[in-house]
Write a protein that binds this DNA or RNA. Sequence first.
DNA 1: AAAAAGAGCAACCGCAGGGAT
DNA 2: GATCCCTGCGGTTGCTCTTTT
Length: 364
Amino acid sequence: MGKAPCCDGEEVKRGPWTQEEDEKLKEYMEKHGPGNWRNLPKKAGLNRCGKSCRLRWTNYLRPNIKRGKFSDEEERLIIHLHSILGNKWSAMAAHLPGRTDNEIKNYWNTHIRKKLLKMGIDPVTHRRSMDLDALQQLPNLLAAAASVNFGNVLMPDPVSSYLKLTADVTQLAKIQLLQNLLQSIKPNLFHSDLHMAAIGSQMCNQLGNMLQASHCANVGMNVREAPEYLNSNTFDPNLILPMLNQPYAFTTASNLDSLVGDKQLGSSCVPSYYAIPPLVPVSSCNATKTQMDPSVSYSTISAVTSSSSAMNSIASSPCEPWDVKHFLELDNDNIGWKDILECMASSCTSSTGILREGDAEGTQ
DNA sequence: AAAAAGAGCAACCGCAGGGAT
DNA sequence: GATCCCTGCGGTTGCTCTTTT
C-alpha cells in the first residue's frame, strides 16, 4: 500500500535540533504526553515534521535515557541478544533499559561489528567467518605460483628469489586453506577442544610435509636441502604478505590457539599446530610425483579446494560428530588430504545419507 | 599547523503493519 | 473491502569531532 511522506509539501525544518526546539518539545510532552505526532509540531509551536519530533523525543529527550559509553555487561548482552534476535534493534532495546534502538544499532555498527570482524567472527552468523573470497582466489593464486616453474632448474637471482616468493604464496594459500578447513569442520566434527587440537596438529603436520615436498619440487631441490625459511621457527609469511598485497590474514601462533579451541592452550602447544616437521616420506601426497611434476602443488590443492565447497556443506549440514576414533586409528605418518576428506565425507554420508551432488556447490 | 582520513552518532528516509474511517 | 493515516522499524546519510599523515 505504501504511504505518503509524513510532511509532504510542507516547509519544515530539518537537521540538528536547537536547544530552543528541544525545550519546546520537552515542555509539550511533559504537559500533554505522547499523542498524535502529526499534530504535535503545530501545537508545540515547532516547524518540524511530526516524525522528526517523535524521533527526537524517543531517542534523545525522553526521560530515563541512559547516555554515554556502553558497559562491558551491556556489550555482552547486545552480542548475546543479536545472536538470538538478529537486527531487531527495538527488541534488543527492550532488554536494555535506558538505551534506544538507534543507539544500540549505532553501537553495533561502529564498535561491536568491527570488533567481531577483527576476531574473525562473522557478525551476522556469530560463527567464525569463512573467507570465501580467499577460497575463490585460491586456484588463481596457485596457478600463478605454479606457472613460474622453470623445469626444475635453479635460476639465479632475482628469478630464484621470485621462485621462492611464489613458492611462499603457494604455502600461504595452502595454510589459508587449512585454516578454512579447520574452521569449517570444527562446529560439527569435534567432540572437544582436545580433539580439535589433536586433529589440527595432525593435519598441520601433514600439510607441512606437503609444503616441503612441493616447494622443493617447485624449485628443483632435494627435500633434504629444505631452506631455512621453511622451518617452523623462522618461516614468517607475514613478511611476504605485504609484498604481495594479498588479502590473506595468516594465522599467528596466538590466534591459532583461538582458532583451534577458543582457549589458550599454552605456548607449548603452539609449534605443533603449524610446525613443519622433520623430513619424512610423504606417501599419501605423491611425493615422488611431486618431485617430478612441478604442477602437482596446484593440482593437489585444486582437488582439495574443489572439495572445500563440499566441506562447507558438510560443515553446515546436520552431521553427527565426526568419527574421530576412526581418524586416530589411521597411521599418522601416512595420512593424506584424501584420507582426511574421505574420513569426513564417510562420516557425514553415514549419518545423513549420500552427499548430494548439489551439496558440493557450497552454501554459506 | 594544515589537510586528509576515519570514527561516531544524530537524524532522515522509505517501507510495512495495523487501526480508523 | 478499500483507502487513509499513524506509528514503528531498520537502513542509510551526512555532519561533526578526532586522529593520522
